[in-house]
Design a binder for these strands. Structure first.
Lengths: 353, 353
DNA sequence: TTTAGCACTCTCTTCTCTAGAGTGCTAAAC
DNA sequence: GTTTAGCACTCTAGAGAAGAGAGTGCTAAA
C-alpha cells in the first residue's frame, strides 16, 4: 500500500485520536490537533480518498471516520511510533514482576496477572508442552515391607517422586532388582516409547508376577505425560467491561465466554519468529468471537523447557504501540531473569516495535 | 417471624415467580397462577400487609412486589420446597464429575467448573490450608560429586523431592551424616518450629561450614509452607452477564472485579457446621460489592487434608432451592468418591435442604 | 492546489404523550 | 367479618417528534 506522506500522517492522526477517544474522528479535529497547516477542507478531501481506498470507514454518512482493519494494519506495520516506556513505567513493571515471582510453579499465571494489570486488558498466558522428555534415572527408597518411595529424575533435572504401596510385599533384594531393571530398560525413553510390550518384557525380566513393575511403569508414564501439558491462564477479564466497545452486554458476554474456554485460547495464533510479536487485528482472527477484537501475542522462554505465549486481548481500537511495548518488556524481562540467573528484572532498554 | 399460612403461601408464590421472571410480581399474577381460590383484591391486601412488614418491597408506587432480603430469608429458612434432583439431573452431575476427575491436582478447580456449568452462575472453589504438616523422613540420593536428590516424606504420605546442587562437593559419608542429622533433628516439626537456632545447631552437629544443612532446611521449610496453601479458583464468570440484574455493565464490572480477587474470595464466610450449607442473602454480605448478590456455600472434604469451600454467586433473585440441591449433591458426591475409595459418583439420593 | 461557504445528512438527546400494569380505597356481596 | 368488584390514581416503558450538533461533499473562489 503506497500512500503519500500526507495521507500517512492523516491516517496516523485518525488512528491515534480514535484510540484515545473511541469516537469517530472528524476532519476538523485532525486539522486542529495536528500541525500540518492544512484546513479541514483539505483534510476532508484526503479522508474521502482514504475512505475510498478502504483504509477508513464511516459508521454513517455524516459521522467522522474510523480506521478499518486495513487501516489498523497499515498503522501497525508502517506508522506506529515506537512507544518508549517511561522510567516510571519500566519501574512499575519491574516491581510488579519482582514481587510476584515467588514460586516458579505459578509464575506463568502470575505473569498473566501482571500483564493484565499493566495493560488494562484481559491477558492470557499459555504454557506450551515441552519437547518430549525422558527419565534419566530411577531410585527406590525402602520405607517398610509394603511401601516404597519411587524417585525419578528427568532429563531437565527436575525430580518427581511418589509413595507406592504394594500389598504383596517387597524387600531390599527385590528393590535392587527393580532398580536395575528400570535403570536399564526405562531410562531415556519418551512417553510413547514405553509400551505394554516393553512393560511385560520387563516384568518377565524382574520375575514379577504381582504387577509391581507395571505399577511403577504407570507412574513413569504419568510423569512424562503430566509434565508441562499445555495450559492456559486467563487474567483480568473484568477489564473488558472498561471499554465502550463492550458496553453492549451481549458482545462482552460473547468475548468473555470465548476467552474462558481454555481450548480456544490454546488455538490462538503464535508469533512467526520465536522472539517476535504478532498483532492480529479484528477480522484477521479466525475465531468468529474475536472478529471485533485484536490480539497482541508474544512468546516467552524461561529456559528449562518452560516456554509459551503471552497475549493481550482488546478492542480493535486498542493502543497497539503501548501494549506491544509493555508486552515486549515483560517477555524480555522474564527471559533475562530466568536465563541470566540474576534474580532482578532488566534495566530499561529501548523497546522495538 | 410468625405469618399466617395464607401469607406464607403468597410470599412463596411471589418469591418463586420473581425467581423465574425477574419482573416484579402483581397481585393478579399470583391470583391466577396459584390455586388458592382468592381474588386479586384479597391478595392485594395481604401483599400490602407483607410490604408493611418489610417482607416485600415495591420498586415504585404502581409496580408489583419484589421480595426484600428479609423476604428471601424467610423463604430460604421456612418456605423453600426441597428441590428434588431429577434422575436426569443427578445423572448429569455424575457424568460431569466422572469425566473431569482425572488428576487430583486440579480437581478442585475442575469441580468449580462443573459447579458453574451446572448452575449457570459463577462458582468459586477454595482449598483451605491443611493442619500443620510435618516431615516424617528424609532420604538423600547421591547423583554426582556436586548433586543430591533430597526426598522428604510428609505425615500424610505425600512425597516431595528436589535436585540440589552443592558447589563445595559432597560424598557418601557426608550424605550419611546429613541423613542422620535431618532424620533426628528435623522430623516431626512444623514449619514454625524449624527456626534459625535449630538450623545452626544442626550445622554445627553435622560439621558443615558450607551451608549445605541450611540449604536443605530451606527446602524443608518450603515444602511445609507450600503444601495446600489456601487457594481460590473462580469459574464461569461470564454467566454473570446472563442475568438481567447485571445488564448494567457497571454493576457487572463491580462484581466481576470483586470475584477476580483471590484474597476477597478467601474471606467469604463459611457454613457453620462442617457438613452444612450456608446461604448469604444480599445485604447480609459483608462486602459492599456483594450487597446485591447472594452466595450459597458448602464445604467439601476429600479426606487426606484436602478440604475447603465450594460456592455459587448470583443475584439475590437466584433459585436457592435448585442451586442448594445441586451444590449439596456435588459436595456429598466428592466425599463419597474420595473417602469411599470407589471411583464412582454416588447414586441418586434424596437431597436435604 | 487549497480554502471558504453552504446545503445536506444522520445521530443523539430531550420532550411529550399514551398504553398498560398495578395499586389502594370504598362500598357492596357473601 | 371476610371477600370481592369497581374505580380513580400513580408510575413506567416505549414511541414519536423536534431540535441541536457534528460532519460531510460539493462548488466556486483564492
Amino acid at each position: 500500500m503506497d500512500l503519500s506522506d500526507r495521507k500517512k500522517k492523516i491516517l496516523r492522526a485518525v488512528v491515534e485520536n480514535y484510540i484515545n477517544t473511541a469516537e469517530p474522528v472528524g476532519s476538523k479535529t485532525i486539522a486542529k490537533e495536528t500541525d500540518m497547516g492544512l484546513s479541514s477542507a483539505t483534510i476532508r478531501n484526503e479522508m474521502a480518498e482514504l475512505t475510498r481506498l478502504g483504509i477508513l470507514e464511516q459508521p454513517h454518512t455524516s459521522a467522522g471516520r474510523v480506521p478499518s482493519p486495513l487501516g489498523y494494519r497499515i498503522y501497525v506495520n508502517e506508522l506506529m511510533r515506537e512507544y518508549r516506556l517511561s522510567v516510571e513505567e519500566a519501574q512499575e513493571i519491574n516491581n510488579a514482576l519482582r514481587q510476584r515471582i515467588a514460586q516458579l510453579d505459578e509464575i506463568i499465571s502470575e505473569v498473566g496477572n501482571v500483564l493484565s494489570e499493566l495493560t488494562n486488558y484481559p491477558a492470557y498466558a499459555l504454557s506450551k508442552p515441552a519437547h518430549k522428555q525422558t527419565i534419566v534415572r530411577f531410585d527406590f527408597i525402602y520405607v517398610d515391607a509394603n511401601t516404597v518411595i519411587v524417585v525419578a529424575m528427568l532429563d531437565n533435572n527436575t525430580v518427581k517422586s511418589k509413595l507406592m504401596y504394594f500389598p504383596t510385599g517387597i524387600d531390599e533384594p527385590l528393590l535392587k532388582k527393580l532398580s536395575n531393571v528400570f535403570n536399564s530398560t526405562f531410562t531415556g525413553l519418551t512417553e510413547d516409547e514405553i509400551d505394554s510390550a516393553l512393560i511385560s518384557a520387563a516384568e518377565r525380566g524382574a520375575n514379577d508376577p504381582n504387577g509391581i513393575v507395571s505399577a511403577i511403569a504407570g507412574f513413569a508414564i504419568n510423569i512424562l505425560s503430566e509434565i508441562t501439558p499445555a495450559k492456559a491462564y486467563l487474567s483480568g477479564t473484568s477489564h473488558i467491561l472498561d471499554h465502550p466497545e463492550y458496553r453492549d452486554v451481549d458482545k462482552a458476554k460473547e468475548l468473555l465466554s470465548y476467552l474462558s474456554n481454555d481450548e480456544e485460547l490454546l488455538k490462538l495464533p503464535e508469533p512467526a519468529r520465536e522472539d517476535g510479536m504478532r498483532i492480529i487485528i479484528g477480522p484477521e482472527n479466525l475465531a468468529e468471537q474475536l472478529r471485533e477484537s485484536s490480539v497482541i501475542v508474544a512468546s516467552y522462554d524461561l529456559g528449562n523447557e518452560m516456554h509459551g505465549l503471552l497475549g493481550v486481548v482488546g478492542p480493535t481500537r486498542m493502543d497497539y504501540a503501548k501494549i506491544a511495548a509493555r508486552l515486549e518488556y515483560i517477555t524480555k524481562g522474564l527471559k533475562r531473569i530466568f536465563s541470566g540467573g540474576n534474580k532482578h528484572p532488566p534495566h530499561i532498554e529501548e523497546p522495538s516495535k
